[in-house]
Amino acid sequence: MKCVYCFQPVHPKTDWRNAFLPGRPSRLCEECMNGFEVITEGCPRCCNPRYSETCPDCRHDSALLSNTSLLFYNDFAKEWMARFKYRGDYELIASMSVFLPYFVRGKAVPVPLSDVRVEERGFNQAEAITELLMKRPRPYLKRSHSEKQAKKSKQERERGANPFLPVQQVRGNLLLIDDIYTTGTTMKQAAAVLKENGADSVRGLTLFHS
């Protein structure tokens, strides 16, 4: 087998990371695996690894009950993300399988992209993650097109209008899925729309926390 990221040969072996997870072999070589850093401690609500208690962003109530992020957004992760999301190397999602929790609760709602963005990328990275979790993606939301989030300041993002629109009334406990948690604004806006339309609770899951 070849490493899904660097194409070097991998000799699959069982270690503590995959011993209890049958059927989900790591497709990363050891060196690439070590490039990622797992978040072991952070803000109890959003997993912000720079805090061990509730971080300033989480002191206010929001529609997003909590968020789990798996990995640090370090330089290695940034390079990975550039190839996965911006160059469009869909197959790379397979390298995340070892880091994902085996079971997650709630109906999976991938954070949608605007039509313009989907056209540009060819796929929605949040749906790729949902598929890897072996969850059925629920198309409960739509997103209108606005300027790139990354280009705005934090204040601008918070002031900006909510780009998400409901598609239908929803029920039950939902799990919002996205690739990265930056300030949480995107996740909170999506959660707010879901709550307004009937969700009992909304939690989040992202691969990275910046």
Binding site: R83, R87, D89, E91, G122, F123, E127
Partner: peptide, 27 residues
Amino acid sequence: RYKFARFPHAACGKKCLYCRNCILMGR
């Protein structure tokens, strides 16, 4: 072979083959 993969392509609705060897130059 191992440098090709498929992805669910929103533009055409199919699972399209793409090249992973030159992916850094765009898909």
